[in-house]
């Protein structure tokens, strides 16, 4: 479903044109309905890897395929169609500041052209799943970091995407809440959704017993089927 072939990503800093190698010759393949965790120190390239799958960034070298589409070469006009198959929990949430929690989630369904009654039914339900029915009419600035994160998670699930990219989705949650979210991701994975999770949380990785990709300074140093958290 997703495959990286010798992918490198180099950034140029805005000041001084220094090169930063965020990813270096990374190759792997993810099959449909897999649950894959990505671990690595801060700055190892986890977010960059997810950005490449979402085609927010294009690879400097190598090729990335998503369902047969070459993401390095695809036209920007074709991206919405691909992105609708993906639900993303961004590390910095990326909620729309001018919309309420409810509207942020509803926006995804509106963008894919869902019917009004479907929106009215599904949005409250998913808000219930992340435990935030009472915050439906709050704007992002009125929410705590953990609440924003949960709205971001709800938004990523609402349209039942084929793939979920979760970039440290439990970073701002207490252990109980974090566990609930991971259980939720596992449940979604069981019904056939591919889940790609980037995390710092050793506990979670060790409990999951799923495939783990370990990044170190942009390079893929381990790819284990039943992985553990080793940095």
């Amino acid at each position: 479903m997703i495959s990286f072939k010798e992918v490198s990503k180099t950034f140029f800093t805005r000041a001084g044109h220094k090169q930063i190698i965020a990813l270096n010759g990374v190759s792997f393949e993810i099959k449909p309905a897999e649950f894959v965790s990505i671990v690595g120190k801060s700055g190892a390239g986890k977010t960059t890897l997810l950005k490449l799958i979402l085609a927010e960034e294009r690879p400097t070298r190598g090729e990335i395929f998503f369902n047969g589409d070459n993401l390095g070469k695809i036209k920007t006009a074709k991206l919405p169609r691909i992105r609708r198959k993906i639900g993303t929990v961004f590390q910095d949430y990326k909620l729309l500041p001018s919309k309420t929690a409810y509207e942020n989630i509803a926006y995804i369904l509106e963008a894919v052209g869902a019917e009004e009654n479907e929106i009215l039914r599904n949005v409250p339900e998913v808000l219930g799943i992340v435990g935030l029915e009472s915050r439906a009419q709050n704007f992002p600035e009125e929410l705590s970091a953990g609440e924003r994160q949960r709205i971001a998670i709800a938004r990523a699930l609402i349209h039942r995407p084929k793939v979920i990219l979760a970039d440290e989705p439990t970073g701002n949650l207490d252990p109980y809440c974090a566990l609930d979210i991971i259980k939720l991701l596992l449940k979604i994975n069981e019904i056939g959704t591919t889940v790609i999770l980037s995390t710092h949380d050793k506990e979670i990785i060790n409990r999951l017993g799923k495939r783990v990709l370990t990044l170190e300074q942009g390079a893929l140093v381990r790819d284990e089927e039943r992985g553990h958290f080793i940095l």
């Binding site: 919405p80 992105r83 990326k94 926006y107 509106e110 963008a111």
Partner: peptide, 11 residues
């Protein structure tokens, strides 16, 4: 953000 969550250009 709207682009990244899959909204079309016209939307």
């Amino acid at each position: 953000i709207q682009r990244l969550v899959g909204a079309s250009n016209w939307f």
